[in-house]
Amino acid sequence: MQQPPKDTPSGEDAVSRSDLNQTREEVLEYWTEERIAEAKPREVRLPKPGPAPASQD
């Protein structure tokens, strides 16, 4: 069974995660050859780099 979308718009969470409520068999049943062929890779956006660490002597 596919998970419902979250209320938070995409890209607002710092970290992406999901709770897996399906069994291995359910996941394998969901991913048919047609779904695999139409799947698109997820866009990965890394956070902006922070300030460089201070050098240590």
Rank of each mutant, 00 (worst) to 15 (best):
M1F: 13
V27R: 08
T8Q: 14
T8A: 10
A37G: 08
Q3M: 12
P49N: 09
A52H: 07
V44P: 00
K48P: 05
P51L: 07
L20P: 00
P47A: 07
K6P: 11
D57N: 14
P4M: 11
E34C: 09
S10M: 04
P9K: 01
E26A: 07
Y30W: 14
P51C: 03
R45W: 03
D57A: 15
D7R: 13
Q22G: 00
A37E: 14
P47C: 06
D19W: 09
I36G: 02
E29D: 10
A14G: 12
Q3I: 10
I36E: 10
W31C: 03
K40V: 07
R45C: 04
E38S: 15
R45N: 06
V44Y: 03
E33N: 11
E43Q: 11
E25M: 04
L20K: 12
P41R: 06
E26I: 00
S10L: 06
G50T: 11
V15E: 13
R35C: 03
S16I: 11
D19Q: 07
S10W: 05
Y30N: 05
D7Q: 14
A54S: 09
D57T: 12
A39Y: 05
A52W: 07
P47N: 07
Q2C: 05
R45P: 00
W31N: 03
S16H: 13
T32I: 02
P41T: 02
S10R: 08
E33R: 09
K6N: 15
Q56E: 15
P53V: 05
L20H: 10
D19M: 05
Y30A: 05
Y30M: 06
V15Q: 13
Q56D: 15
E43I: 07
A54E: 10
E29M: 04
A14K: 11
V44E: 03
A39S: 13
P53D: 05
E34A: 15
P5T: 12
L28H: 07
L20G: 10
E34L: 12
T32F: 00
D57R: 13
Q2W: 08
P41W: 02
P47Y: 04
A52C: 06
P49V: 03
E25Q: 10
T8S: 09
A54L: 11
Q3E: 14
Q3S: 14
S18L: 13
Q2S: 08
T23P: 00
Q2L: 08
V27I: 11
E38W: 05
S55L: 15
S55I: 12
Q2A: 09
E29Q: 10
N21A: 09
T23V: 01
S10H: 04
L46E: 09
A52Q: 11
A14F: 09
S10I: 06
P41V: 02
A52T: 08
E43W: 04
P49W: 02
P51A: 08
Y30P: 00
E38L: 12
E12T: 01
E12L: 08
K6M: 14
K6G: 14
L46C: 06
N21Q: 09
I36P: 01
